[in-house]
Design a protein around this nucleic acid. Sequence first.
DNA 1: GTGGTCTAGACCACC
DNA 2: GTGGTCTAGACCACG
Lengths: 128, 128, 128, 128
Amino acid sequence: MLITLSQKSAKPLYQQVVEQIKGQILKGELKGDEPLPSIRTLAKELTTSVITVKRAYAELEKEGFIYTRQGLGSFVSELNNDEINVVKLKEVEDMLEDGVKRAIQVGLNLEEVIKMVEKIYQERRENK
Amino acid sequence: MLITLSQKSAKPLYQQVVEQIKGQILKGELKGDEPLPSIRTLAKELTTSVITVKRAYAELEKEGFIYTRQGLGSFVSELNNDEINVVKLKEVEDMLEDGVKRAIQVGLNLEEVIKMVEKIYQERRENK
Amino acid sequence: MLITLSQKSAKPLYQQVVEQIKGQILKGELKGDEPLPSIRTLAKELTTSVITVKRAYAELEKEGFIYTRQGLGSFVSELNNDEINVVKLKEVEDMLEDGVKRAIQVGLNLEEVIKMVEKIYQERRENK
Amino acid sequence: MLITLSQKSAKPLYQQVVEQIKGQILKGELKGDEPLPSIRTLAKELTTSVITVKRAYAELEKEGFIYTRQGLGSFVSELNNDEINVVKLKEVEDMLEDGVKRAIQVGLNLEEVIKMVEKIYQERRENK
DNA sequence: GTGGTCTAGACCACC
DNA sequence: GTGGTCTAGACCACG
């Protein structure tokens, strides 16, 4: 369970946790019914407050990625490949939407946007 | 001066104003030294508070897109085409970056991302 | 009576008028009892409002640089050389004070400030 | 965190706060990642409104001197020495420029200006 | 507890 | 009429 938090990021801490766990589930690193660390354990690991981790788990549960059993802890939901794919696409689509909207708003045409996406993709791919 | 505000949007009102005016400047719909509506006038039009519009104008001034003279009003700054282009690309690039990063993170390849961008672009273009 | 106004300057219009007339008096270009253009005339010349020029003249009168006679117009006050010199120094001193205060506040020493003043002086002297 | 406000000053309160905090950062009294007092705390200390302090912090953030995290507070940005020096000189230069311009305009020579700067510097240094 | 957004209303300076 | 500053107070998001 490797998660890294940045206090300097503009993103709230709880959301950083959500995104990273969700990412590991979508990539298949976390599989169905696998147990997650307890809220208190993870909070200690991340040297953050219990409340922050709690909120992250609540968010993940609300979105259906994990489930919680009283007294037992939290576990990864079982998702079949189709579901995972749908979620993946939806995730990325949502995040791209703002940028594309803005591109239209400032008058960029489709070719320019695609060229830019290619450039960003290559760059991120390399120095990753 | 067509600006539409959505109370439902997650984005703060003042930022919606900023983005739309900035967009119109970048598209060339608003040209150098053209006067913007007065703060009070625009506030009435948008049925929002004077302060919200004021904040938007202050933001635009800080970023150099407009200048304001007490007793006279606010005006569009003169930007040359190079400056406009740099800003345009930077704006959109920043907004696309998160989505592309996420796409890589969940294992989408470049073709899939581009296809998705094309789809979003067409959709947004139409129901605009 | 050469005065130039810039709508784009951060300085209020009436103050630009004040400064330029004051400057001409201090440099000796305008001499004692010399008549100034009427408020309406100057307003037309500068394509600005009567109220702006009126305010400038009022300011100049308050500071003792000009005097006004009902029905006759405004005239330059007679100042002897000593008075002029005192005013000159006071003027400049006031304007330099803010910068020097700031220099101290950010921890610049006297040598650095003087070097900077020399640089600015040379530059302004040349491209003037 | 020593800040003093003058209600009499022509400068707006929020700007006085900005200048003094900026000054402390440039002098190195406030270092990178050091936490600033919370908006509410500082407002109480200065017996001014929360909004005035907020505005000051917003300004400092826009200019890159501090960063703010919701729920955590505001912190000093890490700036390297080069950046600090450039900003320092630029700040002071801008503020001195008007005075020097005026000095040239009323016919003072460089020696006179420097003598005046020395005098002001000594005076301000003492009664500080 | 922290900051972020939005509101209403007052007073001043400038044109 | 314009914008600039300052105020008080409410509600929400984050830790």
